[in-house]
Amino acid sequence: MIEPWVVIVCALVLGAGTFAFRFAGPVLRARMELSEHAERLMATSAVVLLAALVATAALIDGGEFAGFARPAGVLVGGVLAWLKAPFVVIVLAAAATAALLRLLGVP
């Protein structure tokens, strides 16, 4: 196992770098006048990133297919969301579907 001071330095560097990513947007944004078009483009970019996170988090685990239980749960959640079910129902149904499928031996 690595030395404690290495872990501390790594945590601080990872923390500082992550903070820089988080901080850059709000600071730079405040310094410029953004057109409505640019504002919309940035909102769209965030939605695209979130959609890509949904897709990869649902289907991929460690660069490989995550198995069937997880995407099946997300799919159930997605259908319920499309049917305008309450948020709590969507989230719990997604988790329960994946858990139940695993209980039944589905990977």
Binding site: A57, G77, G78, V91, A95
Partner: peptide, 12 residues
């Protein structure tokens, strides 16, 4: 099934 809950939250 918490691994399915996270993408479902974002999707919703």
């Amino acid at each position: 099934g918490l691994d399915a809950a996270f993408p479902a939250v974002l999707l919703a």
